[in-house]
Amino acid sequence: MIPLSAYVALSAILFMTGLVGVLIRRNFIVVLMSVEIMLNAANINLVAFSHYLYSMAGQMAALFIIAVAAAEAAVGLAIIIVVFRGKMATNVDQINILKW
């Protein structure tokens, strides 16, 4: 039997991978993918604890997160396409007008 701590560790590793990806990668799509990795890290946590606590609530929440993540990916990609059309930008650091 795989112990709970292994799932939590996997989730933490995935979360950190995603977080570092969001912070250091420049490509829009990679940043979006990193965000998805973070979401899925949260999912693993939920499902692992759901299993550990014998409750379906965590798995239901994970299913909702998957649905929300799908919608988020669609919206995110749409924004990326609009930004690309408007500014011919593919990298996050090309978008820097959000300031004083």
Binding site: V22, L23, V92, D93, I95, N96, L98, K99
Partner: peptide, 10 residues
Amino acid sequence: QSGMVHHYAA
């Protein structure tokens, strides 16, 4: 407020 998304995220 640099305008860079990364900085905000950080």
